[in-house]
Design a protein around this nucleic acid. Structure first.
Lengths: 233, 233
DNA sequence: TGCCTTATTATGTATAGACATAAAATCCAT
DNA sequence: ATGGATTTTATGTCTATACATAATAAGGCA
């Protein structure tokens, strides 16, 4: 006799997802409860629960106590982009990573920066301009501002060898951040640095980083022409 | 006597995360095992397990059987963007959504599309050009291609009232997709449609959608100037 | 009819115990 | 030493049971 191998929560996810895609259970309708499914699959309710919990997380179903589980009519798809360490991103393509500091300046924060970071007028900041190369090609221009009240050790760093991101991550590896993707037409400065013609459309990524509610740093990254981000969902 | 309220897996997540951010456990080091933590918190191993599983999912720790759980030196941050239904995205801003079909044409697929969608040469496709308005302002231009072998019912749709995305989602609400964010300089056609000057940098989103491994549709969305996506991580 | 209280119920979480599994650590024979 | 087989161990998963909780449904009263 062959023994039926025990069903896993992954199997259940797969089966249920198939039924959803099948329209076995129509979009918008209530699907069977956990106990019913557990009986059908011959497993414990906890196993079904885990499968359903993950399907809800993936945006396929809505769950509510007492009301039951409902197939979403319009599944909420979430594109997840892993924000890579730039060195890794470049080395993954087989290219050699190189970093260069272009400028380093202590100064008062400009108004737009104070608004972005919500820091008071007298906050001392360090402004860095950096370039990241893939082989000999400019891959990304980094416009970096560091709040020196929040990260006073940055004063003693010359940032000649190590990029500010790598340095900051060593100081505070775990922090909160808000990132914004957008696009701009390259101005003369950026065009020159990234070796493109003025006006070229470039992907930009802005990031504000906090550590325990104190704004530490603001960055604007300008990617090389043709940069794109892909995600499966 | 006050009874200590039972600890939840969420409490554990919080406590452990605090210790990680604290450097109580150094980045790169091994942290205590599940049994040890369960003892410390006075709860079952399963409870600790769930907390740790989610922290791993969130990119803070790495877990390996036998080897134990290690604090990541470089946490992998994932930016999650919810891909909204355009009608919802526009109506959420308080504006009125309006859709307009610009052109509809049956034709053979151009070479670049066949490459993108991996469909054979003789596949009949429907090419649609659509505009999505927020109030009277052009919000997004949609360049849509539908594989008529995969979605034959599209032949009978005039797409005058309902946009192709809404229609397709009703046909197959749950499908797989690959999306790519990028940027382009507006050409004369797009500039005209979105009412910007030629060369303006625009955010674009390309999406290929499959249903049970059959490529259904390819879209390229051109957003209005100044469009940006923000995510917290 | 309408409002408030109470019961019901599906999901949410916790637990102790068990077995599975991947991978490191050890041991052994060559 | 070196390669291969074996043991050990931390995480991965499943089960049966229990209680918690949110939200709907039902009941009762004015």
């Amino acid at each position: 006799m062959t023994v039926a191998p025990k069903i896993s929560y992954l199997d259940i996810k797969e089966i249920v997802l198939k039924r959803i895609k099948n329209f076995t259970w129509a979009p918008g309708s209530i699907m069977p409860g956990e106990i019913e499914l557990a009986t059908e699959f011959g497993c414990a309710r906890a196993t079904v629960n885990r499968a359903m919990r993950e399907l809800a997380e993936d945006g396929y179903i809505d769950r509510k106590r007492k009301a039951g589980t409902r197939i979403k009519s319009f599944p909420t798809r979430k594109a997840k982009f892993v924000i890579p360490i730039i060195r890794d991103e470049i080395e993954l393509t087989g290219a050699t990573y190189r970093y260069a500091l272009i400028n380093r300046e202590f100064r008062d924060p400009p108004d737009w920066l104070r608004t972005q970071m919500t820091i008071p007028q007298n906050t001392p900041v360090l402004h860095l301009m950096c370039l990241h190369y893939a082989d000999s090609k400019a891959f990304q221009y980094e416009d970096r501002w560091i709040n020196l009240n929040a990260a006073p050790k940055a004063v003693d760093q010359d940032f000649e060898e190590m990029g500010p991101n790598e340095w900051l991550i060593k100081q505070v590896p775990f922090s909160d951040a808000e990132i914004t993707f957008s696009t701009i037409n390259a101005d003369t400065q950026v065009a020159d640095l990234l070796n493109v013609t003025v006006g070229t459309a470039l992907v930009t990524l802005e990031r504000i980083t906090w550590f325990t509610n104190a704004p530490i740093t603001y960055t604007k990254l300008y990617f090389h022409a043709g940069y794109q981000m892909t995600s499966r969902l």
